[in-house]
Amino acid sequence: MDAEQSRTAIDSTVAHPARRYNYWLGGKDNFAADRASGDELEAAFPNVRKGAIANRAMLRRATRYLAAEAGIRQFLDIGTGLPTADNTHEVAQSVAPESRIVYVDNDPLVMVHARALLTTSPEGGTAYIEADLKDPDTILADPTLRETLDLGRPVGLMLIAVLHFIQGHGSAKPIVQRLLDALPSGSYLVATHATSDFGTPEQQALYQQMMEQGRSDVWTRGHAEITDLFEGLELIDPGVVPASKWHPTPGDPAFADNEVNVWAGVARKP
């Protein structure tokens, strides 16, 4: 196996967040390991599917906000996940067909599906980078990024349900800051992040145990640490709130905070 084959090899025996998320959303692009991981988390936290649905709805609303109200025409979506309804480019290009989107994910299966299914409007553009959020310099240095986006113009940085895969206290903020430093004034950060804030003490203790035992790859963070990710930016009202409460629209599911367990925020770089 050469280096390229090794890089793009798909290991179906190890659960991957994108495929597990696909499973929770009712998709078919997942393996037994992904379903087993998803089922274990759902057994401990029965509302996890509701959180996935609320998070996806937040992506749709935030993308529409950036395209329709903020005038953003370029998007960098890191942690893309497997294609489903209302992907970032579909929402953005429904508002502004000339919108250009770069998707980034570290799962080769996501990239295979993305290149096959995520087509673009004739006026806009869609491109894909196989890379990991943990290595922002590789993302920023990829020629595909600069061929597709003009980093001299505002960009919508979409970090949807991906920062909680960065393990460790304080470890997410430097990555966010590195990405924002590469973007000009007028850019936006959209971030959603799993939290244990709404769980019972018993649930919080159980989740901490699962993380310590390596049974969960999601590193939950509290409201203060997630709000700190937006330091130096201008938070859009209502600030960092449960995902289902950020600019809800008619038809969105009305979940309780302890069913969603996801903080969400949108902010502008001054």
Rank of each mutant, 00 (worst) to 15 (best):
D2A: 05
A3C: 10
E4Y: 03
R7W: 08
T8Q: 14
I10V: 14
I10A: 05
D11H: 11
S12P: 13
S12V: 12
S12F: 10
T13V: 03
T13Y: 04
A15D: 02
A15E: 03
H16N: 07
P17L: 11
A18V: 03
Y21A: 00
Y23L: 02
W24M: 10
L25I: 04
L25A: 04
G26T: 01
G26S: 10
D29W: 14
A32K: 07
A33S: 12
A33E: 08
R35C: 12
A36H: 03
L41I: 09
L41E: 15
L41C: 08
E42Q: 12
F45C: 04
N47L: 11
M58L: 13
R61C: 12
T63K: 05
T63M: 05
A68T: 01
E69G: 05
A70M: 06
G71E: 07
I72S: 02
Q74Y: 14
L76P: 03
T80L: 14
T80A: 15
G81Y: 15
L82N: 07
P83A: 04
T84F: 13
T84P: 15
D86N: 13
E90M: 07
R100N: 10
I101W: 10
D105Y: 11
N106Y: 07
D107Q: 10
D107N: 03
M111C: 15
A116Q: 14
L117I: 08
L117G: 10
L118A: 15
L118N: 14
T119K: 15
S121W: 14
G124S: 12
A127R: 04
Y128E: 06
I129K: 05
I129V: 08
D132T: 01
D137C: 11
D137P: 13
L140E: 06
A141P: 15
T144K: 14
T148C: 11
D150F: 06
D150S: 05
L151T: 00
P154M: 01
P154R: 02
P154A: 02
V155Q: 05
M158P: 12
A161R: 06
F165V: 01
I166K: 06
G168V: 01
H169M: 05
H169Q: 15
G170E: 00
S171H: 14
P174I: 00
I175Y: 14
Q177C: 01
Q177N: 07
R178I: 00
L179D: 00
L179M: 13
S185E: 07
V190S: 12
H193K: 00
H193R: 01
A194N: 03
S196T: 09
F198P: 03
T200C: 02
Q203P: 09
Q203K: 06
A205L: 07
A205I: 00
Q208I: 00
M211V: 10
S216L: 02
S216H: 04
D217Y: 06
A224T: 02
A224E: 12
E225H: 06
I226N: 06
I226K: 04
E231Y: 10
L235N: 00
P238V: 07
V241G: 03
A243M: 08
W246V: 00
H247M: 03
T249W: 12
G251D: 05
A254R: 15
F255S: 09
F255M: 00
D257H: 03
V260E: 03
A264Y: 05
K269I: 02
